[in-house]
């Protein structure tokens, strides 16, 4: 019995990582419709921020907590710069945005290789995240790693903060207005260009947070972004664009499915099965779990 419980917790923690890396995309891809392939490299930037901060600050806990806001700002600034330089010229051509940002991601990977070297680097995680929380003791124990719980907490906090921002702040109201009807928003006096850049800043900043979280569960390297970005996009595709709720449900559903399949088969077979499940799901709901109702023909 505990096997299923621990396996579903593994799924939930995979889902939490997926959610964190997909959350930024739910803004840039979900809200703005921009496919930013360099998103994975913003995650990488967040992870390297932890690595950089651990140089001057030897205490792993302090540097990790300090890395959260710093990584948010670093990745966010990179995103805003990318939006200003390239993406705003390409809003009418989403597929070309995908290719252009892939070129950017190639450059950033090479930059990481030149600056930090091609091999993976490692960071030390703080002592208070190294243990495991024992829920059920005895012969058949159920334990949860603190680092996974931390990621889960971070994901929940990020979702809450993003929801509040979208629902309760003037910026969030403007962002939703631009998504729903760009022309009308502009006619109402909203500077849509600035809102776009801010949305992109927030989305990319969330990628930086995800990068900080990823240092707890895996190595940091120039290609770390490429390996996870596809999964993150699949979360948004399944979740449906325009709604945060869809991304949350999809991230945990995919995480649990992946964990269950990995338990009963192998990692590679599990990935293929999850993918087939996604294609099958899109047969049933091509627009994803949640979607904004619009009157467009698509």
């Amino acid at each position: 019995m505990t096997v299923y419980l621990s396996q579903s917790f593994t799924g939930i923690s995979i889902g939490a990582v997926l959610l964190l890396i997909a959350l930024g995309l739910s803004l840039t891809f979900g809200q703005m419709g921009v496919i930013n392939m360099a998103h994975g490299e913003f995650i990488m930037a967040g992870a390297y921020t932890v690595y950089m901060l651990q140089g001057p600050i030897s205490d792993a806990g302090v540097s990790l907590l300090l890395a959260l806001p710093v990584a948010f700002l670093v990745a966010g600034a990179m995103g805003a710069l990318l939006e200003w330089l390239l993406i705003r010229r390409l809003y009418a051509r989403p597929l070309d945005t995908l290719l252009v940002t892939w070129g950017v991601s190639l450059m950033l990977q090479q930059l990481a290789r030149d600056v930090f070297g091609a091999p993976n680097v490692h960071t030390s995680s703080p002592d208070w995240l190294s243990g495991r929380l024992t829920l059920i003791g005895g012969e058949d124990p159920l334990t949860l790693a603190y680092s996974r719980l931390f990621i889960l907490g971070l994901a929940v906090a990020a979702v809450a903060a993003l929801t509040l921002t979208l629902r309760r702040t003037p910026l969030g109201r403007r962002m939703r207005a631009v998504v729903q009807h760009r022309d009308l928003a502009e006619a109402s006096g909203i500077a849509t260009g600035r809102v776009d850049r801010l949305t992109f800043f927030l989305g990319s900043g969330l990628a930086g947070l995800a990068g900080v979280a990823l240092t707890l569960v895996g190595p940091i390297g120039p290609t770390m972004g490429t390996n996870i970005i596809i999964d993150a996009f699949l979360v948004i595709v399944v979740g449906g664009i325009g709604r945060l709720r869809g991304a949350v449900v999809a991230a945990f559903a995919l995480g649990v499915l992946q964990a269950v399949m990995e338990y009963s088969t192998t990692v590679s077979v599990a990935r293929v099965t999850v993918l087939i499940a996604i294609v099958a799901f899109l047969q049933w709901r091509p627009q994803g779990i949640h979607t904004l109702r619009t009157r467009s023909l698509a």
């Binding site: 419709g33 496919i35 989403p94 995908l98 596809i230 996009f233 699949l234 595709v237 996604i278």
Partner: peptide, 8 residues
């Protein structure tokens, strides 16, 4: 279609 197809 579009980006969805590309990602898939």
């Amino acid at each position: 279609r579009g980006a969805y197809f590309a990602i898939l």
